[in-house]
Amino acid sequence: MLQGTLDLLILQTLIMGPAHGHTIAHTIEQRSEEVLQVEHGSLYPALHRLENRRWIASFWGTSENNRKARYYRLTAAGRKQLLEHTNRWDRLVRAVNRVLRPAKEET
């Protein structure tokens, strides 16, 4: 998986509201149409890294079926970061598309 993609996916997921690790993992798995196969465990170091950068914050809460779970939410800095990353990603994708499909662009 591309470096930083997972970070971006996590931030994107959290924009809908706070979620715990299990939810985040499943959401990413579904939303990336299972193209991005995440071993759910590898999510946690990424969560930790994002939290260290203060892009997300965590708190203990109760899950849907009454289990104690650690919830994450997006911080203001994280929101800004997501916006920036999304823009950059869009630019990158456009650039890659221009290179790979020049003819189609022209038509």
Binding site: H20, G21, R67
Partner: peptide
């Protein structure tokens, strides 16, 4: 220790 508990929580939820 905190992380251990978090991973346990994941397992519980997934098992459920």
């Amino acid at each position: 220790a905190e992380r251990a508990r978090e991973l346990d929580a994941y397992l519980e939820i997934e098992t459920d």
